[in-house]
């Protein structure tokens, strides 16, 4: 998504816009959901940081959209358009998320079962291509040049793959060119005063950065990170007791008294070490998106 944001930013820049683009990092490492934002204007951009009220929100992973903790819906109002990578309909999403604005769907991920992460399509490029069309001011040449700028260091093959995916998405949304419009800047003739408070002093037992309990990390649903889900075939499991459970870096596999392993999907990050290490190959991977659709 960081790269998708950069492609879009560069495309705007090549079209003569002032641009800000940036990824947003949190504590989470590789594999965790990530946000990126892009601002573009014909005038110098004075606003900074997170976009509070987006004109366009692009959701590359639709499993994140309904999760409040992912914050996908933050600041979405009647003016905001959502583009979501999904095989479900716009109406379904609009209803499910109770969105006041328009929703468009981009079916960018393959429905077929793929062998691993490497086979997942270039979702980022698709999102960038689609967004470039929706804003209505980026031509195909600028988009292609931006992809070369941002991905050129990865080699011609990667560029060609991403160009194909991005221009396909760009074409797919031809009818919606310019659907995204700029909202007026916040007026200063009237505003709601900030709800400032006089912070009360609180003793260090409360106000030190200390956690007075163990295991609170389990409240973090790192299962959201998965793009591929490991699934155990109980028929093929040889009840070895230890391989998947010991090698799972995240303590997300436990073995019960009968020797049956159980994957904690709330926390499994989908690294698939278990799949790679299982001696009888009793674990396979299925795309998370499809699996959640099924649930």
């Amino acid at each position: 998504m960081k790269t998708a944001g950069r492609i879009l930013g560069t495309a705007f820049f090549r079209e003569g816009y002032e641009v800000q683009d940036a990824p947003r990092y949190g504590a989470e490492r590789r594999g965790a959901p990530i946000f990126a934002f892009v601002r573009a204007d014909k005038n110098p951009i004075l606003e900074r940081g997170i976009i509070r009220r987006p004109d366009l929100a692009v959701v590359a992973d639709d499993t994140l959209a309904p999760m409040p903790s992912a914050g996908v819906l933050a600041g979405m109002d009647g003016h905001s358009l959502m583009l979501i990578n999904s095989h479900e309909t716009a109406e379904t999403w609009r209803g499910r998320l109770a969105l006041p604005g328009r929703v468009l769907v981009l079916p960018a991920s393959a429905e077929v079962e793929v062998e691993g992460r490497a086979a997942l399509p270039q979702v980022g490029a698709a999102c960038a291509g689609a967004a470039a069309r929706l804003v209505g001011v980026i031509g195909p040449d600028a988009l292609a040049a931006a992809i070369r700028d941002e991905l050129g260091h990865l080699g011609e093959g990667v560029v060609a793959d991403n160009l194909g995916v991005a221009s396909h998405a760009y074409d797919l949304l031809a009818a919606e060119a310019g659907a995204v419009t700029e909202r007026p800047p916040q007026a200063a003739d009237a505003w709601q005063s900030p709800d400032w408070i006089d912070l009360p002093f609180e003793g260090a037992g409360i106000s030190a950065p200390a956690i007075h309990a163990g295991l609170t990390s389990e409240l973090m649903q790192t299962g959201l990170w998965r793009t591929m889900r490991p699934v155990i075939d109980p028929e093929r499991c040889n009840h070895c007791w230890w391989v998947c459970s010991t090698f799972c870096p995240d303590s997300a596999i436990s073995v019960d008294g009968k020797g049956n392993p159980h994957i904690d999907y709330d926390h499994c990050k989908g690294c698939l070490v278990c799949l790679a290490q299982c001696p009888p190959h009793a674990i396979r991977a299925v795309p998370e998106q499809r699996e959640q659709g099924r649930e």
């Binding site: 989470e28 990390s217 007791w241 995240d250 997300a252 989908g270 070490v273």
Partner: peptide
């Protein structure tokens, strides 16, 4: 080897 683990899941370390 232990088959039930003490370290909590849900940490923000990279997958794998």
């Amino acid at each position: 080897l232990p088959s039930v683990h003490l370290l909590g899941s849900g940490s923000p370390m990279c997958a794998g």
